[in-house]
Amino acid sequence: MTVRLLLTGYSTAARNMAIDESVLHHVASGDSPPTFRLYGWKPPAVSIGYFQSLAEEVDLDACDELGVEVVRRITGGGAVFHDDEVTYSAVIPEDWGSVPDSIPESYEYICGGILKGLGGLGIDARFQGLNDIAAGGKKISGNAQTRRKGMILQHGTILISIDLEKMFTLLKVPSEKTRKKLIDSAKDRVTSINDILTSHVSFEDVVSALAGGFERSLGVEFERSELSENELSMADKVAGEKYGTEDWNHMR
């Protein structure tokens, strides 16, 4: 089976989320084929889960000062600091191939590609329900899924490196005292590719490892392609009219 692969490089937070939504819309309408996309965030950004309160979770002044964007996702889950990482999104019909109907099982099914991709880099990782991947017992990838219009949209991040001090400056914490504790405990719970490997890997290295991992795990062949004209114009519109607005980002 041939699946479209989009390598869209780095984009702003609003544009990244708008592209995912536009692809979802166009795969659902039958105008685009099932799609995997690999991308990054520039400038760095914090994304929050659909049900989170932006003002409660994120220190907006700190984000401003450090040039970090914020955006609400259409998927649930927690706040994520996107910096030195590769993000993927998969848009596939719910009844596509052998994808399980059960949400927990479909997370594991799609995450199988990340396990294979990390394996290709020499990292032994495991799926950890509901929606995490761990290496050496520490989280290296978080994932989130929504089901709309008969489609599964799953996106997630694979950390290349992580600056926990910066992350807990951007996220709100109950007090300065707990900030230190949270950073220390996160050091025991979170890892990244560069924490594990001795040789340096680039964004492009991780992108190609993940693309190969998804192909092997799902038994598909990727065909490199670009966003269609319609996908691009909807992405532009949705970036400006939804993901870039206070109404959306401060919805809760």
Binding site: G49, F51, I74, G76, G77, A79, I103, T146, R147, R252
Partner: peptide, 15 residues
């Protein structure tokens, strides 16, 4: 009432 958190609900509009 506003319910917030890092949970998942499918469909999201159920909340």
């Amino acid at each position: 009432i506003v319910i917030t958190g890092d949970f998942f609900a499918h469909p999201e509009k159920a909340i």
